[in-house]
Amino acid sequence: MKYGYYPGCSLEGISTEYDESMRALFAQLEVTIEDLPDWICCGTLAAPSISHLLGLATPLWNVARAQQTGYDQLIAPCSACLYHFKRAAKQVAEDPALRAEVEAVLELPLDAAPPTIHPLELLSADGFEARIRQSIQRDLSGLKVVCYYGCHISRPASVMQFDDPENPQSMDRLLDWVGVQTLDWPRKVDCCGAHFSMIKPDIVIDLCRRLFESALEAGADAIVVACPMCHANLDTRQEAIAANMGQPLNMPVLYFSQVLGCALGLPDEKLGFKRHIVDPVPLMLKKCNQRMKVEV
């Protein structure tokens, strides 16, 4: 299987640690990935707000290049990018005239476009279970987390076609394989406020407050995420959220790739813990089995 890798803009900026830990995890699991050449931004909600055709052509620029390069699958760790790839691919697949329009704009064909998938979809498949279980180097069985999927990994179901849209399980399953305690909670697919962080931060603070209250009520040590926007909002806004809650808050927010990487023995510098606003190292040191400490 030939995997193309589309990091997306966030993983080159505010979510550098997601990119670092994802690449290190793939290397550890011997999954060979290749960066998509000449990739551009997916356009997110901004390109469709200018023009419908531009909103389709922008994500499909990358898919057309993935087809040209001959990838079997394109991996997109950002769930917002993933949604826009899948949304655009579905629309042109269902409407041949629209596909012809988009191909004319791209000046590239889209007749054999490879599917785009989230790394959760790849790694939670049964084929990886034995490989992951056999690679465990550190005991994280003392770590209690809630898995936060956010809006787009599994929804809308007709577009994403992955996992249970209202009660997704793929991240819980992956973390269960490495012994982490995943707790039930009711806000797995709630919204974090996404890019409203830049426009109306009060809305984001209110939405994230509900997530932290629910995570604390469940008894979680940390929230584990698979989306750079969710991570940015939960990690960088904690001071303001704590003020809004009227109580101190110091809950690490980790990417699933960091937790898995830690369990598989990857060193801190490959997992990017030092980049977090809320430092997760004290928690990881406390929860790791003493004989298998996180190297910091």
Partner: peptide, 14 residues
């Protein structure tokens, strides 16, 4: 956002 894309192709989030 779109103006930034027109400069770089990718977004410089900052």
């Amino acid at each position: 956002f779109v103006d930034n894309m027109r400069l770089n192709g990718k977004i410089h989030d900052a």
